[in-house]
Nucleic acid binder design. Structure first.
Length: 267
DNA sequence: ATGGTCGCTAAGCGA
């Protein structure tokens, strides 16, 4: 029985709980990771989540900003809510499956800082913070490089390759696709022996996006997207991934998130 | 050309 794992930057879980239900109704993920829930833990709509069939939940939120949540039809234990880049932001949640097809696998759910607009860490503290976060992800990846049975998903806020953006040239100085970010993410992936489970099924140079700006007059016509949302795995787990879907249609749902769900199936 | 739109929480910030 395969397992379907979805990751989605929902941009407010309370505003879009109906879209979460729509995703579950139409695509039936067994495991669902959300980012940017923007909701303190005591206000999280957990009853709705349980009604959707997720008996196992882990939430790590804060009021108004950031926030990550992991739901599963299979049992897990929460193993970490780490502190990153010298801030108490709710940007990481680790869970380890106790049963089911991914028993023993640790799932890391991340929301990497966006980094502001100015791609210069000396004048933009938000960009400096993002780069520090990526450096810490690199160091963490090095520490766990020899371990198996791991997945990391989430909004990494970096589109690493030219085929992950609508225009490589026009985005080279735009935060999310600057060389210091894309090289930093590549170095982290190599240091951790991570496999990009999405690109394993849709190789470069096919264009692939998971985010389209709210500011476009017509997001679909202009199609100026970026692939900011990722599913990576250690080699043993990646070898079990059998397919991927990026739900572009979700960008056209009523009052959508600017990100769409990414679903990877594991056999 | 240097915007444009969202969501939070109540004018401005973060994305």
């Amino acid at each position: 029985m395969p397992l379907r794992l979805a990751t989605w930057n929902i941009n407010s879980v309370r505003l879009r709980i109906g879209l979460v239900a729509k995703l579950v109704d139409e695509h039936a993920p067994d495991v669902l990771c959300l980012q940017e829930t923007k909701c303190a833990d005591d206000h999280f709509p957990l009853n709705d989540i349980r009604k959707l069939g997720y008996a196992h939940v882990a939430i790590h939120g804060q009021k108004g900003y950031h926030g990550v949540a992991t739901f599963s039809r299979f049992p897990f234990v929460t193993t970490a809510k780490e502190r990153w880049a010298d801030k108490d932001d709710a940007r990481h949640l680790a869970t380890t499956f106790a049963a089911g097809p991914l028993e023993g696998v640790t799932l890391h759910n991340f929301y990497v800082p966006a980094g502001g607009d100015e791609p210069d860490p000396t004048i933009n503290p938000k960009f400096a913070h993002k780069l520090q976060f990526v450096r810490e992800l690199h160091q963490w990846s090095e520490r766990i490089a020899e371990t198996d049975a791991r997945i990391m998903v989430g909004d990494l806020n970096i589109a690493p390759d030219p085929s992950d953006v609508w225009s490589h040239k026009q985005l080279l100085r735009v935060v999310s696709h600057t060389p210091v970010e894309t090289e930093g993410l590549d170095a982290m992936r190599l240091a951790g022996r991570w496999v990009d489970a999405v690109r394993a099924h849709v190789p470069h140079p096919e264009k692939l996006y998971s985010w389209w700006s709210y500011r476009a007059a017509d997001w679909e016509a202009s199609d100026r997207g970026r692939r900011l949302d990722h599913v990576w795995a250690s080699e043993d787990v990646a070898a079990r991934s059998t397919g991927v879907e990026i739900l572009k249609a979700a960008r056209g749902w009523d009052r959508p998130s600017d990100h769409v769900p990414v679903i990877v199936t594991f056999g």
